[in-house]
């Protein structure tokens, strides 16, 4: 049994960075129920890895690494995904739907749709780019060189922009 103080510390870290988990789940899962399950699965993996957290990296880097690894390995190309063995009826991270302006919503939906069509690794790169992570941090999360990060992001951005314009027409 882990120490109570440890779980309080963990809870605090998750409270601060909950947005990362939600955004990763949002990018990799279209279905609401799948998203809840993925969030839960990510939290379980984060908790299991919390003891071995390497403090040379920032918490956000650590959370991105684990969240992306879980999302890619568990949700990849599975049409009928198996539910985790002990599902919870409600989500750990609750989300209250907001309503933005129509145009904002429309643009955001187009962007999400285009990102959802990308390959898993490109999705991860794009998510980190849009979150304005530095090339150095992206390279630490993904595990490729900074030069490679820059080249790939440029390529994906071009595709993204072209598609965005096509969608808007």
């Amino acid at each position: 049994m882990k120490h109570v103080g440890k779980s309080e510390e963990f809870l605090e870290v998750i409270q601060i960075h909950k947005g990362i988990i939600y955004k990763v789940a949002n990018v990799y899962c279209k279905d609401e129920e799948d998203r809840k399950d993925l969030v839960q699965e990510i939290v379980i993996h984060l908790w299991r890895s919390f003891e071995s957290y390497d403090d040379t990296f920032r918490y956000s880097t650590w959370i991105y690494r684990i969240s992306l690894n879980v999302a890619i390995s568990l949700y990849r190309k599975e049409n009928s995904r198996k539910r985790i063995s002990n599902p919870l009826t409600d989500g750990i991270i609750k989300y209250t739907e907001y309503t933005g302006s129509d145009e904002t919503e429309a643009d955001l939906n187009i962007l999400r749709q285009i990102i959802s069509q990308l390959k898993d690794l490109d999705k991860a790169l794009m998510l980190l780019y849009l979150e304005e992570k530095s090339h150095k941090e992206i390279s630490q999360i993904i595990g490729i060189s900074e030069t490679n990060v820059a080249t790939k992001i440029n390529r994906i951005k071009q595709v993204l922009k072209q598609k965005f314009i096509q969608f808007k027409k």
Partner: peptide
């Protein structure tokens, strides 16, 4: 592109809440 993405960020942060009871149940038991 970044601005479109950011539009959701601020609101998402506000709209998200961690369900502490479930959370503790998950990390301690489930």
């Amino acid at each position: 592109l970044i601005n479109i993405w950011k539009m959701q960020n601020a609101k998402i942060e506000k709209a998200l809440a961690v369900n502490e009871i479930l959370f503790k149940e998950v990390i301690n038991n489930k």
